[in-house]
Design a protein around this nucleic acid. Structure first.
Lengths: 291, 291
DNA sequence: CGGGTCTTTGATTAGGTTCAATAAGAGTGG
DNA sequence: CCACTCTTATTGAACCTAATCAAAGACCCG
C-alpha cells in the first residue's frame, strides 16, 4: 500500500544545507523539504517570531489518488500537513463500514486521533494527487517546548479540530438533509476561497457517496439535494462541477421551499388521502425558510 | 450566574502549606485544593514520576444544579476537571437552539473548546451538585514543559476528546435511534462502573430531552426506546432509575425485533393498504438483529 | 468499444418527528 | 398537609423526511 515510502525515511531528518527554493519547500537529495516557518504559514499559525531553524526541515511525500497515508491501527509517529491535493479520513467501525470524518486539504493537519492510543484510529486516503508534509510528533512537541508561540499553536490547532467535530455533531444532530448539503457546499466554497481558488466555481473531489457518508446521508439524498438547489437557482451542478449562485441562501437554508416537483408530490399525496377519506394536508410552508 | 465565584480567586494560587487530607483534596483557608498528583489520578494519567510539587495546588469550586460553569463567548482562561457530580456542555447555534455535546463526570476534563478562539465556544451547566477543579491553562502548559509525561498526557487527553467526538459523529451518521439509545446506556453503564458505582443500576442525571439532544433525537423517541428495551427485557426503567439487564444485547443492538405493539402497527398498516388496494407488506424482519 | 464506477431520477416504504393528551413527580405557599 | 403549578415522562395517531429499491444514463479508462 505504498506505506514503505513513508517509513523508510524516518531517520536522517536533522542536517543543514538549504538549496534552491521551489513553490513551497526546497529540493534536497531529490526530495522536497519545508522549514518550520513554511509549516507555520501553511497551518495559518501566527509564527513570525520563530527563529530561522535552518537545521529543522520537514520532508514532503507524494501520494496518488487512492493511496493510503496511514491505516487503522498502524503505530502513531507522525502528524501530516497537506501542502497540496485532497484527502479523506475515514472511521471504520466494528462491522467494516466506512464513515468519512473529514476532507483534509491545503493547510490542514491530520492524524491527531492517533495520539491517544499511540495508533491511528482512522485511515487517511488521497482523493487526488497529494503533497503531504511529514511532521514527526516527538519533534513537533519538542519544538513547542523551545518556541512558546508554537506550543500555543499546537494546542490551538488541536482545539480547532475539536471545534470542527463539535460543529459536525451539531449539524448531524439538528439539521435536515438539505441544510447539511447546503452547509457542506458553503464550507467547501469558503475553503476554496481561503486557498486562493474560486469560491464560486469549483470541482468536487469526492463522490456523492463520500459526501453522503460525511453528512450522514445516502448518496441519492445528496444527489437529490444538488438537483433541487440547481432547480431553484442556488447552484449550478454538472457532475463534479459546482457553481455557487446564491451563497447567502445556502448559508441560511433550513428546509426547501415548495417547488414544481414538490407541488406535484403534494398533489399526488392529496389525491391518495382523499381516496381514503382523510382531510387534506394543511402544511403550506412559507417561502424559502431561513434562520 | 455565580460566575463571580469563579473569577474572584484567580490570583493567589501559588503558596505552600498543606493541611489535613480530605476525600480528594485538602482544606486551606476554608477551601478545597488538590495537588498535581491528585489531578493526574483523577484524569487517569499515568503520572507517578511527577515530583511532589507541594507548592502547586489547584482550587476546587462547588456548583449547584443549574449553575453555569462558563458561558458562550466568555474569555478562556481555565480548563475544568470534574471531581464529583454531573454536568452537561451545550453548543448554542445562531438561532439559540441548544445541542448537548457531552455529559462530563468524575475525571473528565472540559473547556478545551475555548483554547482556539481564546473564548469558550460552548456552555457548561451543572446537572447536580458538583465539585470542579480549576486548572488555569497557562499553568497547565507551563507544568507540561517541565514534566515530560504531563505534556504527553495533555496532548493525549485532547486527542481522547477528539476521538470521543469522532465516535459521536459516526454514531449520529450511521446508527438507528434505538441503537444510539442502547449505546448511550452502555457507555453510561461503563462510565459508572469506572467511577466505582454500579454499572447495572443507576439513576440518569439528565432529562429525556437532554439525552435526545445529545443523540440527535426527540425526547419522545428516547422515551419510546427506553420503553421498548424495557418491554423486551434489556433494561428496567422507572423514570430516572435504570437497571441494565442484558448489556451484551445493548452493545450489539442495531434494530429492534418485532414485538407486540409493532405487530399491532403492522396489522394496522396492512389494513390501511388493503383498503386502497395496495399489496401487503413483505418486510418480515429476522429475530433480534445484532452485529 | 466495453466494462466499470458514478450519478440521476422515480416509486415505495420505514423510521422518526410532530402534535396532542395524560400522568407522574417535585416544589411551593397557604 | 393539601392544592396548585411546573417540569418531566409516557403513549397514541398522523404525517413527513430520507432510506431503500430499481432502472437507466453519463463518464472514464484501458
Amino acid at each position: 500500500m505504498s506505506l514503505t515510502q513513508v517509513h523508510e525515511l524516518n531517520s536522517a531528518l536533522a542536517s543543514p544545507g538549504v538549496q534552491s527554493p521551489v513553490d513551497a519547500g526546497w529540493h534536497r537529495g531529490g526530495k522536497l523539504w519545508s522549514n518550520l516557518n513554511e509549516v507555520c504559514d501553511l497551518l495559518r499559525i501566527p509564527s513570525g517570531l520563530v527563529g530561522t531553524d535552518a537545521d529543522c526541515l520537514f520532508q514532503h511525500v507524494q501520494f496518488k489518488a487512492g493511496q493510503r497515508i496511514y491505516t487503522l491501527g498502524q503505530p502513531f509517529e507522525m502528524l501530516y500537513i497537506v501542502n497540496s491535493g485532497f484527502l479523506k479520513t475515514v472511521l471504520i467501525d466494528e462491522s467494516g463500514n466506512e464513515q468519512v470524518l473529514s476532507f483534509p486539504m491545503k493547510g490542514d493537519l491530520f492524524g491527531i486521533d492517533g495520539i491517544h492510543h499511540r495508533q491511528y484510529a482512522s485511515e487517511a486516503v488521497a482523493l487526488s494527487s497529494c503533497d503531504v508534509i511529514l511532521m514527526p510528533f516527538k519533534k513537533f512537541t519538542a519544538l513547542g517546548r523551545t518556541h512558546a508561540e508554537l506550543e500555543t499553536a499546537i494546542y490551538s490547532v488541536m482545539s480547532r479540530e475539536l471545534l470542527r467535530e463539535q460543529i459536525m455533531v451539531s449539524m448531524l444532530g439538528s439539521l435536515s438533509a438539505e441544510a447539511r448539503v447546503a452547509r457542506f457546499l458553503v464550507s467547501l466554497s469558503e475553503r476554496f476561497a481561503e486557498m486562493g481558488y474560486s469560491g464560486k466555481q469549483f470541482n468536487l473531489r469526492m463522490t456523492r457517496h463520500e459526501i453522503g457518508s460525511y453528512l450522514g446521508l445516502t448518496l441519492e439524498t445528496v444527489s437529490r439535494a444538488f438537483s433541487a438547489f440547481n432547480e431553484i437557482g442556488l447552484i449550478s451542478v454538472e457532475q463534479r462541477a459546482i457553481g455557487i449562485k446564491d451563497l447567502q441562501a445556502l448559508k441560511t437554508l433550513r428546509r426547501l421551499p415548495p417547488s414544481r416537483s414538490r407541488a406535484k408530490q403534494e398533489a399526488a399525496n392529496a389525491m391518495k388521502r382523499s381516496a381514503i377519506g382523510l382531510p387534506s394536508a394543511s402544511s403550506s410552508r412559507g417561502p424559502v425558510a431561513v434562520a
